[in-house]
């Protein structure tokens, strides 16, 4: 596999994540979409790490930290979803439109 292939897969992953984040009404699905986008970035980093970079540890560390931070992010977002659920009894993104204009 060449670098281009990895990058294409990464781009596809990013786009899929994006589409997921944009099309799903469920907040959790939205979250998953965004996580996919981050994973696309991780994939890119690893690919570059493999093909371009002289020092192979940098990308790996980067990706590990991304994974860690993503976990934290998910935790925070889930707690917010919980709060929303308590108020609305629903986690539909389209219903959260009290604020506009």
């Amino acid at each position: 596999m060449t670098l281009e292939a990895y990058l294409l897969v990464g781009a596809a992953l990013f786009s899929l994540g994006l589409i997921g984040a944009l099309s799903h009404r469920n907040l959790i699905a939205l979250l998953i979409g965004i996580e996919l986008m981050m994973n696309a970035a991780s994939l890119n980093l690893m690919a570059f790490n493999r093909f371009v970079v002289t020092d192979p540890t940098t990308g790996q560390i980067f990706v590990l930290i991304i994974i860690g931070l993503a976990a934290a992010e998910v935790a925070i977002f889930l707690s917010i979803i919980l709060r929303i659920y308590r108020a609305y009894h629903d986690i539909d993104a389209e219903k959260l439109t009290k604020l506009s204009g």
Partner: peptide, 9 residues
């Protein structure tokens, strides 16, 4: 909770 949740989300 409703306002806070929406804006935070």
């Amino acid at each position: 909770a409703d306002i806070g949740g929406e804006s935070a989300a």
